[in-house]
């Protein structure tokens, strides 16, 4: 799965990025690369056993939620 996600990131980077580069929209390209990088990091983190940000949020907020809801 990790490999597939990386492949997808690469494909998106190529398909979306090259036109951006050609049009000289460097800022867009940078933001897009950062987003792809985040996706990449998330997958790598999962691969290395780090929890996803949603799980962190869950750990933080679930007790509050359990206190309110049944």
């Amino acid at each position: 799965m990790t490999a597939l996600i990386m492949l997808a990131a690469l494909a998106i980077g190529l398909v979306e990025g090259i036109p951006l580069g050609k049009q000289g929209q460097w800022k867009e390209l940078a933001v897009m690369s950062i987003l792809l990088g985040i996706a990449f990091l998330l997958v790598m983190g999962y691969y290395l056993g780090l929890p996803s940000p949603l799980v962190l949020m869950e750990r933080l907020l679930e007790p509050v939620g359990k206190a309110i809801f049944k």
């Binding site: 987003l35 997958v43 983190g45």
Partner: peptide, 20 residues
């Protein structure tokens, strides 16, 4: 333009829903 951010956004979202 925002169009180029949609697919990366979808990818992050996909990754989140897969790993969380």
């Amino acid at each position: 333009s925002y169009q180029s951010l949609i697919y990366p956004g979808a990818l992050i979202s996909l990754v989140l829903s897969l790993i969380s």
